[in-house]
């Protein structure tokens, strides 16, 4: 009869690994004398794993300037819908970030031109290194891996995108100032009559009594509205024009006219 029969798997393994140290019978050997083998898993909350998990496009996007809106007519079907005109002007690659050096892959691009007298000497040196003119806006686009990097100085034109594809648009929404809950969150407010006293546009109850004795965090209350980073996903590219330098996207774009918008491939259509 084998001495290993009837033992639990751990004891069986340790017995085979350290036959001298493990005793199957009752003994006075201290557990600390037995060396345990740990299988060290890489934790999921590391920086490298977070970069891998992130849903990003495989190639870079570009910075554009929102110029206004207009109608679009489909010549075949007669369907009409509004489009936003995004200007693309002198968009060039300034810097590449690699996984080896920075820990993630990204392309830094700049938009337009700026008076060099109004640019700090630090940024002037940055532009001079890439051999591009001083830019009015610099933005970074994180990409999947180093394969999507572009040579420094490459110009990105509207033909970077093709009509019919979908893009994600990132902008800063219009600021609305300090607003109440009716405008900010669409709450209903109170009745205008039937005994309502001075609380017509209030948020109603904010919490319970002694238990818990406080207002729970995240309660919707009046405060600053708008002026936030907003992403609009899956916008259709309707038309492009390299000569005139514009992209037409279907529908609205966050932010006021003459504000910068980051345009990149839609992550949900990849």
């Amino acid at each position: 009869m084998s001495p290993l029969l009837g033992l639990n798997p751990l004891t069986k393994r340790l017995t085979l690994q350290f036959p001298r140290l493990v005793r199957t019978g009752a003994s006075l050997t201290a557990p600390s004398t037995i060396t345990k083998t740990f299988i060290a898993n890489e934790p999921n909350h590391s920086q490298a794993k977070a970069v891998e998990r992130r849903r990003v496009p495989s190639r870079t996007g570009l910075v554009a300037l929102k110029r206004g809106m207009g109608p679009w007519f489909d010549e075949a079907t007669g369907v009409t819908f509004p489009v936003t005109i995004l200007e693309v002007n002198q968009v060039e690659v300034i810097l590449n970030k690699t996984k080896a050096k920075e820990g993630y892959s990204a392309v830094q691009v700049g938009y337009g031109s700026k008076n060099p007298n109004k640019v700090s000497r630090q940024l002037l040196g940055h532009f001079a290194k890439a051999k591009v003119n001083p830019k009015s806006k610099v933005a970074e686009f994180m990409i999947k891996n180093d394969e999507g990097l572009l040579p420094v100085g490459t110009e990105l034109k509207p033909s970077h995108f093709t009509p019919g594809q979908y893009v994600d648009l990132k902008g800063v929404s219009k600021g609305k100032g300090f607003q109440g809950v009716v405008k900010r969150y669409g709450m209903k407010g109170q009745k205008s009559s039937h005994g309502t006293s001075l609380t017509h546009r209030h948020g109603g109850s904010f919490g319970a009594n002694t238990t818990p004795g406080r207002v729970l965090p995240g309660k919707k209350m009046p405060g600053h509205m708008g002026n936030k980073n907003v992403t609009k996903q899956n916008s259709l590219v309707v038309d492009i024009n390299d000569e005139a330098g514009y992209i037409l996207v279907k529908g609205h774009v966050p932010g006021p006219d003459n504000s910068f918008v980051k345009v990149s491939d839609a992550i949900k259509k990849m």
């Binding site: 000497r121 001079a128 003119n133 330098g245 514009y246």
Partner: peptide, 21 residues
Amino acid sequence: IDVYNPLNYGRKDVMQTYKDS
């Protein structure tokens, strides 16, 4: 510090070009 010239296109107003087209 070297300052490079911008890519000068001499473009018209983008909104006007869109409307004209």
